[in-house]
Design a protein around this nucleic acid. Structure first.
Length: 677
DNA sequence: GGCAATCTCCTTTTT
DNA sequence: GGAGATTGCC
């Protein structure tokens, strides 16, 4: 829709704002103005806890009630969870009228455009691959390189990251390498070969990786006016959440649509934490340069936290060289002091958290009121173990995704080869499950299968090879004859159960086995296995204890990157130790340090009533080559003012043996808080 | 030679 | 907890 579709034309028909908003809500005046602003392109700068989501919901409702139909509104969010919640709340408020409202991630949005018209994007019969798959391909070609053992050859993981980063920010791959792995440049010609092989392989196997999905659409929109118009016609209002975390590739998608659709972006520069993926919060500051007629609005009142929590958060930002111009003020007034708990080691830290959760529960708090925030997945492991031992129900968001766990991938490999007999990654995985088949034999068989036209043809070829266990073709036959995805999944699980039990016995088999019925249930809604896999690669769900949502009441364990937009009454920010905030390896890199600061800021500002920060021995600091004093000097909590927190040191309540073990850590000065303060 | 079992090292963050 | 390297077994 062109600019006549802008809301401006309706200005005279508006109901008085007050009347309109009394329904949904307690929006404040800033939020009301943002939700109902009639300008074509709007950027809303919103501090943490200032009601961003609420404003987006109100905006969607306002548009649907006054200007357009629900199917003309599309909301771009960061996670499946956020989009589901927004749609749900609008539907609850508006009922039938909200039918057709769409909210999705950038990736799902692009993928649905591709699926609606594959030929337009040259992507007929392509299937989506996840990061693991990409990594396998990189590993394969890296291992094949003559320089595989050269110490200057980056790891497959680094090649993938550099490749993906380049595609998200633009520029050349060489420039990215120069920045992140300068010493590898001497091998650039060899590395180039690996990249070319990777791209050729994607082409041949008809794979789309995450970046392809966005880029394919972005390129077509940019280069073909007709496609641009078609995409623009799919919605007249685009609402973009978490705008500070969009990157140049995503901007390349939105930019050509400007003045064809109405754009409403919401973001907070202080919460930009996706720099590693090419996001640059400067896109907020330069919004007006990009769109000269843009209107900039602000949400400044915090409704989430009590003032003490905000004081600490404000202080953290204030210590930065950058001027975020943020001073959050609590609409709720005062509450209790944030607490900083220090432990000898991560196990004591974890067991204290478990005990504290239990006592809060005994006081009548729900498990759901608690959120445990971690910077890195692995740092949450000891806490996770504590929760399991204490039988506290929890969900780990940002942890292992259910479709990425080994046992599920094994089953899916079987389904994938049946669905797409050209999918050699899945063939390798599937074949290697069987006794007597390793890399070598699987690769040989794949060579033979290359000339097969479909799965039946493959099965024949496999049957012919007597060195292959006969249960291989038998299982493929059974699965290929099933009529529904659910049955296909079930048959694969049955056919592989013995093998899988053997493979995973001794590593949580009892727990893993519970995932099969869960995933089987998920497949039910999909017509083909490829659709199912695609949906969950683009917007994953997470492994839990015994189900998708095991019980109604559970503790949320979550990575800070996944916690954007979320909140909880009681928040534990764990392993807030030296060498973690900022990461020791970031010392000397201002950009990285500032992003670490914002990561911590996001974590602190999730808390509504109670903020509990925990830390222990400088575990990761020790392993870095940086000097201890540097790490200490730049530690964000190195000189935290006394009046901002309550100090709780648990290090001396332990038995002496523990203390002696940690002697190095506490030796220098016999006062409390050595090294950390 | 090929496969399986064992040991060691590392581990930011996500679609 | 998992990937990669190494050793041991057939």
């Amino acid at each position: 829709m062109s600019s006549e579709g802008s809301v401006k034309k309706d200005i005279d028909n508006l109901p008085p704002l007050e009347d309109y908003f009394t329904k949904e809500s307690d929006l404040n005046s800033e939020q009301k103005i943002a939700a109902s602003c009639l300008d074509e392109n709007i950027l809303v700068l919103a501090g943490a806890g200032c009601g961003k989501t609420k404003t987006i919901i109100a905006r969607a409702q306002f548009l649907i009630e006054n200007h357009t139909s629900a199917k003309d509104v599309h909301i771009l969010t960061f996670t499946r969870k956020a989009s589901a919640e927004i749609v749900q709340r609008v539907k609850t408020n508006l009922g039938e009228k909200a039918e057709g409202l769409k909210a999705s991630t950038f990736h799902t949005w692009c993928m649905s455009l591709i699926r609606r018209s594959p030929d337009l994007f040259g992507c007929k019969d392509y299937s989506v691959i996840d990061r693991e798959d990409q990594l396998s391909i990189f590993r394969f070609y890296r291992a094949a390189s003559k320089f595989a053992n050269n110490p200057e050859m980056p790891r497959a993981l680094d090649l993938l990251d550099a490749y993906s980063y380049t595609r998200n920010v633009g520029g050349t791959f060489k420039q990215t390498l120069e920045k992140n792995h300068p010493s590898s440049l001497e091998l650039f010609d060899e590395i180039k070969k690996i990249i070319i092989a990777f791209e050729k392989r994607k082409e041949e196997s008809k794979y789309l990786d995450y970046d392809d999905i966005l880029e394919v659409v972005a390129n077509q929109i940019e280069n073909h006016p007709k496609i641009r118009d078609w995409v623009a016609s799919q919605q007249s209002y685009l609402l973009v959440d978490e705008f500070q975390d969009t990157n140049p590739l995503q901007w390349k998608l939105i930019n050509p649509l400007i003045y064809k659709i109405n754009l409403f972006c919401v973001g907070d520069d202080a919460q930009s934490i996706y720099g590693f993926r090419g996001a640059d919060f400067e896109n907020i500051h330069s919004f007006k340069d990009k769109i000269p007629n843009a209107t900039i609005l602000k949400l400044t009142k915090n409704y989430r936290s009590t003032q003490e929590i905000l004081d600490l958060s404000n202080w953290l930002l204030d210590q930065s060289k950058l001027d975020y111009q943020k001073k959050l003020v609590a609409a709720r007034g005062n509450g209790s002091m944030p607490e900083l708990h220090t432990f000898l080691n991560e196990w004591e830290e974890a067991s204290w958290i478990v005990e504290d959760l239990k006592s809060a529960f005994a006081d009548g708090k729900k498990w759901k009121e608690n959120m445990i925030l971690t910077r890195a997945q692995f740092a949450a492991r000891s806490v996770e173990r504590g929760l399991i031992e204490a039988k506290i129900p929890y969900v780990f968001i940002g942890g292992r995704k259910i479709l990425e766990s080994g046992h599920i991938k094994d089953v899916l490999a079987c389904l994938r080869v049946v669905a797409n007999s050209k999918d050699d990654l899945s063939w390798m995985r599937f074949l290697k499950l069987f006794k007597g088949i390793g890399d070598v034999k699987a690769a040989k068989l794949l060579d033979q299968l290359a000339s097969c036209i479909d799965i039946q043809d493959c099965i024949k070829t496999i049957k012919y090879d007597l060195s292959i266990p006969e249960n291989v073709p038998r299982l493929l036959e059974v699965v290929s004859k099933t009529k529904t995805t659910k049955n296909a999944f079930r048959e694969s699980v049955i056919g592989l159960s013995k093998i899988l039990e053997n493979k995973y016995k001794g590593s949580n088999w009892e727990k893993r086995i519970k995932d099969f019925p869960v995933v089987e249930q998920l497949t039910e809604k999909f017509n083909t296995i490829l659709e199912f896999i695609e949906a969950y690669i683009l917007e994953p769900i997470y492994e839990t204890e015994g189900g998708i949502v095991p019980v109604k009441d559970y503790v949320t364990l979550i990575t800070i990157h996944s916690a954007k937009g979320l909140e909880a009454n009681r928040c534990y920010v764990i392993s807030a130790s030296q060498g973690v905030y900022p990461l020791a390896r970031h010392l000397g890199e201002d950009r990285e340090i500032e992003e670490d600061r914002r990561v911590l800021y996001v974590a602190l500002t999730r808390a509504k009533d109670k903020l509990l920060i925990t830390r222990s021995g400088n575990e990761s600091a020790a392993s870095m080559q940086k000097s201890k004093s540097d790490i200490n000097d730049q530690y964000f909590f190195a000189d935290l003012p006394d009046d901002l927190y309550e100090n709780k040191d648990h290090r001396y309540k332990n038995n002496y043996e523990d203390i002696f073990e940690e002697l190095d850590f506490i030796s220098a000065k016999p006062s409390t808080n050595v090294d950390l303060e």
